[in-house]
């Protein structure tokens, strides 16, 4: 677990420009490794958006945890939060864009005071899949949040929860002491409400590697998670999403501090799998920042790489302007194209 956010500790890598500088130099400036853009050119591929299916909204960087590899650099010391006016713009955009999925993330999205209002509005606008990316411990943090699982159930919210491992040691090392036990308590409560057990109450878990290595087979890890969580805690869940750690923010800082950066980038580049390009999440997702700014994905948002074009805020973008827009790429994109690929819904191929 990190002691504080990079921003709070005034770390150089708190600045996205510095992160991009790192990602542009070293093996990529020397030519030892091809840039992502060159790799696409070599394949004669230009990544473009297809049809908007997922509106992914970051409700703020505030979080009750300070996880070691957080790509958002979230934590209790982050004050950026989506305002009520911007929530209105999101609700308006749901009506305009009619996405199949509303994917709420953070920080801890539950910590935004407008969180419940946004979900109720999405329900009334008949969004098919309303996802909340919950860190689980927030649901155990105080009496107000303890009511949230019931609220999720009443609104048919799809819960996607981070759990890096079924062992306490690995989970707590990455996410903080006591996180595993609280997460298990929250998962049991979600199970008791029917999550992960009843067909319409989906509970998925997210696994990300606890270090400088790629995730293994999603199918095999899912089977291990299901077997262990059932045997040890009688916990059920639907799917396990394996997500590759992208070399940005706190994970980039970790790679640099442990001298793993170059080897990790080599691993990502060598594992580049062209077949993942067609299933990349940036092709059907629009990522919205806490201030209403627009990005091709959550990672571009954290690197402050905006969408291309002159309409860079949600309030300005018309639904017709989404499709066939060129996607802004950089070296971190190798994280989504390595091996079986990676997206917020897990492996791609």
């Amino acid at each position: 677990m990190a002691k504080s956010s990079l921003q709070r500790s005034k770390h150089l890598l708190a600045d996205p420009k510095q992160q991009l500088q790192v990602l542009s130099s070293g093996p990529f400036s020397s030519g030892a490794l091809p840039t992502f853009s060159d790799r696409l050119k070599g394949l004669n591929v230009e990544l473009k958006t297809d049809k908007l299916e997922i509106l992914q909204v970051n409700l703020g960087y505030m979080c009750n945890q300070t996880c070691a590899h957080c790509h958002v650099d979230a934590g209790p010391d982050r004050k950026e939060i989506m305002s009520s006016d911007t929530i209105d713009q999101v609700i308006d955009a749901i009506g305009r864009f009619r996405p199949n999925t509303l994917d709420l993330t953070g920080g801890a999205p539950e910590m935004n005071p407008e969180f419940q209002r946004l979900i109720r509005a999405a329900v009334s606008l008949s969004v098919k899949d309303i996802i909340v990316r919950s860190n689980l411990t927030i649901l155990e943090s105080n009496n107000d949040y303890k009511n949230y699982p019931q609220f999720f159930k009443e609104n048919g919210v799809h819960v996607v929860s981070s759990l890096p491992h079924y062992s306490m040691r690995t989970t707590d090392r990455q996410r903080g002491e006591g996180v595993f036990s609280k997460s298990i308590t929250a998962l049991k409560r979600l199970n008791e409400l029917g999550y992960g057990r009843e067909k319409h109450l989906k509970l998925d878990l997210v696994y990300n590697p606890s270090g400088a290595f790629l995730p293994g087979s999603e199918k095999e890890l899912e089977a291990d998670f299901k077997r262990k969580l059932k045997a040890d805690f009688d916990i059920d869940f639907n799917e396990l999403f394996c997500i590759t750690n992208l070399p940005i923010s706190r994970f980039l800082e970790y790679l640099m501090a442990t001298e793993n950066y170059e080897e990790y980038m080599e691993t990502l580049v060598e594992a580049f799998n062209p077949s993942t390009l067609y299933g990349l999440m940036c092709r059907n997702t629009l990522s919205v920042g806490y201030d209403g700014s627009l990005y091709d994905c959550d990672f571009n948002q954290m690197l402050q790489i905006p969408i291309l074009g002159d309409k860079r805020y949600l309030a300005d973008l018309e639904s017709s302007a989404y499709s066939n827009r060129k996607i802004n790429v950089h070296q971190h994109c190798y994280g989504c194209t390595a091996g079986s690929g990676s997206s917020c819904q897990g492996s791609i191929s």
Binding site: H165, Y166, S167, R169, T170, Y207, P209, S210, G211, F213, L214, P215, G216, S217, E220, L221, D224, F225
Partner: peptide, 11 residues
């Protein structure tokens, strides 16, 4: 590394 990728624990 292979063990880490497979989620094999330290124990």
């Amino acid at each position: 590394k292979d063990g880490l990728q497979r989620g094999i624990t330290e124990e």
